[in-house]
Amino acid sequence: MNQHLTNDTLIDYLHGELRPQDDALAHAHLAVCSSCRQARDAESGVTDFLRAGAAAEEQEFPSLVAAAVWQRIREAPPTPLARFRTFFRPAIAVPLAAVLLVGGWFASPLGHGSSGGARSIDALYYFQAHAAQSASSPLSEHSGMPVDETSMNDEAGSAAPLVDQYAAYALSGGINAVR
């Protein structure tokens, strides 16, 4: 390197921020160039001035600051997260979890002691029995009107057979018997 080093290069050199090849070139140049060494010494003087001044002006950490920090932390209103955590303390969280667990048990199929498939069969049975009962006695709970089982399962036209049955029942004197 024949060119003199700039102050910017010297600053980076002194801070160890040059690339390895540039650092080696600068180092080699400083070994043979007195004017660049002088410039480097001037830059080093600035660094020494700053470090010596920093050491001379070093201050102790004021205890008042620490006390003020702790006071402000204590006085600060709790954050939403802190409030949430306070709410879910063990004293509240444990009974709440127990209630949720018991509620979940009764709400689940396990709590009923039967499976989902069985429940659907029960419903079907109920509807069939209820329809049969209604069909057998339109005006009274207990009458001897025969039930047409096939009409109960006819989803599309279940109303028509019921009307027919009722007409037949009336003609046979069933209504009079009820009266």
Binding site: N7, D8, I11, D12, H15, E17, A42, E43, G45, V46, F49, L50
Partner: peptide, 19 residues
């Protein structure tokens, strides 16, 4: 890098003046 170079150029002048 550029801020440091500018700052040190100013400080260099101050130090030289003080010396």
């Amino acid at each position: 890098r550029s801020r440091l170079h500018r700052a040190r150029a100013l400080l260099r002048r101050l130090v030289e003046r003080a010396q």
